[in-house]
Write a protein that binds this DNA or RNA. Structure first.
Length: 201
DNA sequence: GAATAGATTGTCT
DNA sequence: GACAATCTATTCT
């Protein structure tokens, strides 16, 4: 059972709408070592240049953020804390530096391959319950920078039924962004054990 | 379960 | 030279 990748129009909308609707969708990567797939259970919206929590805040357009200014439906990957990669999807109209961070997924296929890449047992929630963990489990790094999720790459997102209950909360670890840190721009499936930071619900 | 410290490097000031 | 959209091990309660 396989579905077509979500088309570019899905991503070319408000980043807040896309972030909410991505919860429940199916992230897939087909690599030479095997296929891994997971259900997205937690996302965050970043909406530069106004949003001070976004890397593209104040219109900062650099080699790192360049992909956020490009067409929607492409991957934005960045390296942080000296050792982790994080996977985002570029959203909004082309030229608007908006993106959705995928913070956690629920493993659906290829858990053994994820476990091998992560170095943890396949039945542990630590497999994919955080942005750095998702990127590692899916084997994503600089090589997938600006990869097209709408076709032509080995990484894409498929449609799937929407969860019954999607909660929202402030974003995680963006305290430096002042008032913007309070905006409830994190979306997650209520009650899902793979969500990274426990919400107050 | 919560809190803390240490790891480690690309990016920007 | 400071710091970051984090993770892990360890040390508390």
């Amino acid at each position: 059972m396989s579905a077509a990748p979500l088309e570019r129009g899905f991503y070319a909308r408000s980043v807040l709408v896309v972030a909410r609707e991505l919860v429940g969708k199916r992230l897939v990567r087909r690599a030479p070592e095997g296929l891994v797939a997971g259900r997205i259970v937690e996302t965050e919206a970043y909406r530069g240049p106004d949003d001070l929590a976004a890397h593209s805040s104040r219109g900062r357009r650099t080699a790192r953020t360049e992909a956020m200014f490009g067409e929607p439906g492409r991957a934005y990957l960045y390296f942080l804390y000296g050792m982790h990669w994080a996977f985002n999807v570029v959203c909004g109209p082309e030229g608007a530096p908006h993106a959705v961070l995928v913070r956690a997924v629920e493993p659906l296929e290829g858990a053994e391959l994820m476990a091998a890449r992560r170095g943890v047992a396949a039945d542990r929630k630590e497999l994919t319950n955080g942005p750095g963990k998702v990127a590692a489990a899916f084997g994503l790094d600089r090589a997938r920078y600006a990869a097209d999720l709408c076709g032509g790459s080995d990484l894409w997102i498929e449609d799937a039924p929407r969860p019954v209950a999607v909660g929202r909360s402030p974003r995680i670890n963006v305290d430096y962004a002042g008032a913007w840190a309070q905006k409830p721009w994190r979306f997650y499936e209520r009650g899902n054990r793979w969500v990274s930071v426990k919400p107050r619900d």
